[in-house]
Design a protein around this nucleic acid. Structure first.
Lengths: 239, 239
DNA sequence: CTAGTTATGGTCAAATAGACCAAAACACAT
DNA sequence: ATGTGTTTTGGTCTATTTGACCATAACTAG
């Protein structure tokens, strides 16, 4: 829908093209209110179709790499980032995704830590945008980002995704800010603290963060296996 | 793994082939203890690789059909079944999936009602098997079935998937048997009843099932929209 | 030393889940 | 006709969880 189906018969001749794209999420401390918010990098299209519109980073699937490797590679090439988390999102293959050629996109989604996101190069053709207010993107990429956001929100409530936004040591308030940024609502500090401390895989250190103008918070460490990601029988390395 | 990687370089030349497969679940009343159990149809491979092994039904993606349409079509062609539920499972694209050629499979999973499953043709090359005790299947299809089972169990606990195994009217005991077959454990009838009646989208009729040698159970009806399937921003028609 | 802010610990009531009990309603055998 | 066995249906009780809320601790800035 949205695109006239005049040349469906033409497109039907060509074999579907296979591409890999990635939705990359990072937290950036918004200058406005000082709280972290969700951002993502997009690349400007230099060719038709959708020339000059922003799109998800990605590219074709090389014959000698797995799907996840292809996602990591195209992510590395376009944005220079190395993800702390990478998971398949969905395979999009609607007939009207591209007006030129039938295209099947296997989309991944990724998280990067703030230190990584800090050294991400922003060029003429690579820009960062707030995930909650995006313009019209190329192809069906608005829908894809919405779906990735939905998955991220679901995963953060369940699993241990939040720590992939953070460094090795963190305060409980930082974890809470991740949740608040992802879920889009404020959480009660005391209740949040109680819940986090009831979960395993999170242990307290002897260190505190000094220098704030208030009571110094304790630092914690995440000890859960990175593989324990609630993906069922699919481990990380298995496709 | 398991297959020698002698000809990786050869395979690397050819473009990845794109196929659609489907894991189809149906409940069959097991002759042994009279309770329904999970079954799925498989097709026998008549060609190499994995000749004579059982495999998931599927086929190549035609250029003029969407992914979901391709899944429904190949499902229809191989087993003659029409699913009551159909959802994308995962895209598998490991390098060693097929010893002959690099292949990317976008896998769907489906549910069929018992009346549909009853008229499913069982031929020399199409057989039905219990989902919990499968032999060695072709390719990585054992892993795929395991993953589909995991997703099914998760969905049944959350959403309203169970009714896609049942007809338009059903007793609460039938719903409970679906849960028990999927989850693999017995549930307390009274507690299960209380939970179901607390959910919306399920209304009682005035009819009862007569003929049993016990108190006749009331028939219920599911009134929830078939679209309300907890797939986030992805509606049924979208991919 | 005081005010402001966050961290941390705690209470309380509502909602939920699980174990369990008991009566109702049928078929069947005697 | 009457009891027996089975399943349905309604109910209670307790432990656990969730969210709202309060209070104190510990720091900095003035």
């Amino acid at each position: 829908m949205g695109i006239g189906s005049a040349n469906v018969s033409e497109r039907a001749q060509q074999p579907p093209e296979l591409a890999i794209s990635t939705v990359i999420f990072a937290l950036r401390t918004d200058a406005g209110h000082g709280r972290p918010t969700l951002w993502l990098p997009l690349v400007r299209r230099t060719r038709q179709p959708f020339r000059d519109l922003w799109a998800l980073p990605g590219g074709p699937l090389s014959a000698a790499e797995s799907l996840q490797d292809a996602a990591a590679r195209s992510l590395q090439e376009t944005t220079g980032l190395q993800p702390s988390y990478l998971e398949q999102l969905y395979a999009f293959g609607g007939l009207d995704r591209s007006p030129v050629q039938r295209m099947v996109s296997i989309v991944y989604w990724a998280l990067v830590r703030p230190d990584e996101a800090a050294l991400a190069r922003e060029t003429e053709n690579v820009g960062w945008f707030r995930a909650d207010c995006l313009d019209r993107l190329a192809f069906d990429h608005n829908l894809i980002v919405d779906y990735a956001l939905w998955r991220l929100r679901n995963k953060v409530e369940y699993g241990s995704i939040a720590y992939d936004f953070l460094g090795p040591k963190f305060t409980l308030a930082q974890v809470r800010e991740v949740y608040e940024a992802v879920l889009g609502r404020k959480l009660d500090p005391a209740n949040f603290r109680r819940q986090l401390r009831s979960t395993p895989d999170i242990e307290e250190t002897d260190e505190y963060v000094q220098g704030g103008r208030h009571r110094p918070p304790r630092l914690y460490r995440y000890t859960g296996a990175a593989a324990q990601r609630n993906n069922g029988p699919l481990s990380q390395t298995v496709e």
